[in-house]
Computed example of a mutant assay.
Amino acid sequence: MKLKALLTSAVAVAAIAGPALAQDVTLRIQTHYATEHPTGQLLAQWIDDVQTMSDGAIAVEMFYSSSVVATTETFDAAINGILDCDATGGAYQTGKNAAFQFVGDIMGGYDTPWQQYSWLYYGGGYDAAQELYNAQGMQLIGWSIYGQESLSSSKPLAGFADLDGWKFRSPPGMETEIFQELGASPIVMDFTEIFTALETGIIDGADASGLANNVGLGIYDIVKHATYPGFHSMPSDHLACNQSVWEGLTEGQRRIIDTAWQKLSFQVALSNEKANAEAAAALREDGVKLYNWSAEDRAAFRKGAQVAWEDWGTRSPEAAALLESHKTYLGQLGLLN
């Protein structure tokens, strides 16, 4: 009887403790991508992976196209509990700390997504970046990098010398500073103004997106020159969660989210590489001239970019630490002299 009583008691305790250990959770996440965008579709697959691998214990409510708050406000919404996680990118948060530039878009640093991923996971980047995120009450889960962006132009961009006096649409921030240093004439304007400015000759070209995305936007209906593969910009999107929310998950739940995100990262890079290659072949047939800059010209651009890097590295201790981490790893890869 005593043994039976002990077993009954153990079953009762397990019945109480069991649900608490495997408690279901719903994560509210916002992305700037639309549902029909290729990355938006891969995010939908990520959600399915997370929900399936967790056997329904983790549900994800994804808000596409920045439908809750503005894209730039997503990070704060996660910090303040309006959302649980942010699936936009660190580059939107340089106003909080200049160091976010070095986790959002290093500008002229790595040649491929795989090199940049390797800094994050094997070059000390994850720990260095985590300090920056944790100071904001957030946890960096991982990146997704779709690859180098292409510059589009109405005139040749065959190499470094062609930047002299080249007028183009540029986003604000570090990129504008780099291209000014190199003799170009960047003009900050809204994305929606690019087409009219190209058609009227206000600008000679534009930094918009990757080659395949630029095709979808219709840029090469107007201009017939582009850099490919690109070299100047390779933005990284992130998944970052409210630190308290993240720490409230079980270790198993955290592993599922992280593992599924690494699969997403891999597929974002591969799918865009394929899309860009297909776009390049089609553009060449249509008479668009594509320029693959030489190693010497890429090195010249990277050297010029370092002037802006060093300036941004003075803007906060965290920026200085992340810049030093990148420079060390870029040196190991042979990308810095």
Rank of each mutant, 00 (worst) to 15 (best):
G137M: 08
I194F: 01
S185P: 00
S144A: 12
Y133L: 05
A206I: 07
L157E: 04
I187V: 15
E177D: 15
G137P: 09
A197M: 07
S154I: 04
L140K: 04
L163H: 05
L182Q: 12
R169D: 03
F179K: 02
K224C: 01
S170K: 09
I145K: 09
P156Q: 10
M174W: 00
M138V: 09
L163P: 03
E175N: 06
G137Y: 09
I187R: 11
S144R: 15
S144G: 04
P186H: 10
G159S: 05
T176C: 00
F191I: 11
G165F: 04
V188M: 05
L151N: 05
L140T: 01
F160L: 02
N214S: 15
G218S: 10
L217H: 11
S209G: 07
R169N: 12
I222G: 05
D162N: 09
Q180G: 14
F191K: 14
I145N: 12
S152T: 13
V223Y: 12
N214K: 02
G147Y: 11
L182H: 06
V223K: 12
D207G: 08
M138T: 05
P186N: 06
G142I: 03
G147M: 11
L182P: 03
I202Y: 11
K167A: 14
L217T: 11
A158S: 15
S209H: 12
I222M: 05
G210S: 14
Q180V: 04
E149P: 00
L198A: 09
E177L: 14
A135C: 03
L198H: 07
A212Y: 11
D162C: 06
A197C: 08
